[in-house]
Amino acid sequence: MVRFALARFGAAVFVLVSISVLVFLIFFATPGVDPAARIAGRNADQATLAQVQAEFGLDQPLPVRYALMMKHLFVDRDLTSFVNRGVLVIPQIVHAVPVTLSLVLGAAVLWMVVGVAMGTLAAAWRGRAADPLIVLVGVVGVSIPVYWLGEVVNLVTQSRLHDSVFSWVPPLGYVPLTQNPAQWALRLLFPWLTLAVLYAGIYARVLRSEMMGALDEDYVRTARAKGVSERRILIKHALRCSLIPIVSLFGLDFGALVGGSALLTEVVFGLPGVGRLTYTALQNLDLPVILGTVLYAAFFVVLSNALVDLVYAALDPRVRHV
């Protein structure tokens, strides 16, 4: 298992280095594009262009440029945005990460608990009225666009019913956990719920069908012939085996969300997370910021996939000895 973990992380590091090279090439070696003009932003003057030229070593060969770039990113951490003159890129990302992590982690806990509970109950109650009802709730959850649901939630909690039922709801925005844990949770409550609705629906459906399959397996029949109780069969045998695909799904979704896919939720609820940072940078064509966030997103996707593989191996003994 330890060897498997080391091998898996070795592979992850390799993927990360490859991604950084790839991203670098896209930004600095796309034919017909002058990277200096791109980095400097629209309508930059000659002095700025020259500064960019020098800072990124644009007159030097590619490997040197790559090394310089990485030095700016990870060693000196002085990559500067030229669009917003002199604003350092790395601190922006560092500030945005806790916001996104808070949002996605909280939502993930919610959707895993709700989704797994719904899927398991639907499978346990198959053939009864509750099963299609749960499925229906799940479909509704999946079908509602996050930005629309978020806006409606805002409309209700911040405006229409803010004077009566929802007077306890704080204004939009983010309060760090270290500063005021209660406010942190309260402000994130509706973003969590909004984001979780979609994923809970998806996970409930996937888990339900996985469990239906598992309950028809021979090993469930064996367990029954052993005299094992229905509840134990459901949880120890069927659910345990059905969780394996759920975990891989979770890894993909979680990595992508932390990497910036929570953008819509962040924008709607005014949360200054990575998604929103990328979004603003894209609007201003702020290349250094985009470069930073893309690498950051890749890092999280790769990391969460590596973690998923480890959990996968822990859950499924058949994977371990590959």
């Binding site: 021979d218 064996t222 367990a223 012939a225 345990r240 085996c241």
Partner: peptide
């Protein structure tokens, strides 16, 4: 009463 089944490949929970 114990019952054993035909296919030993699938009659044990794999995990």
């Amino acid at each position: 009463i114990a019952m054993i089944f035909q296919d030993p490949m699938t009659s044990l929970t794999p995990v």
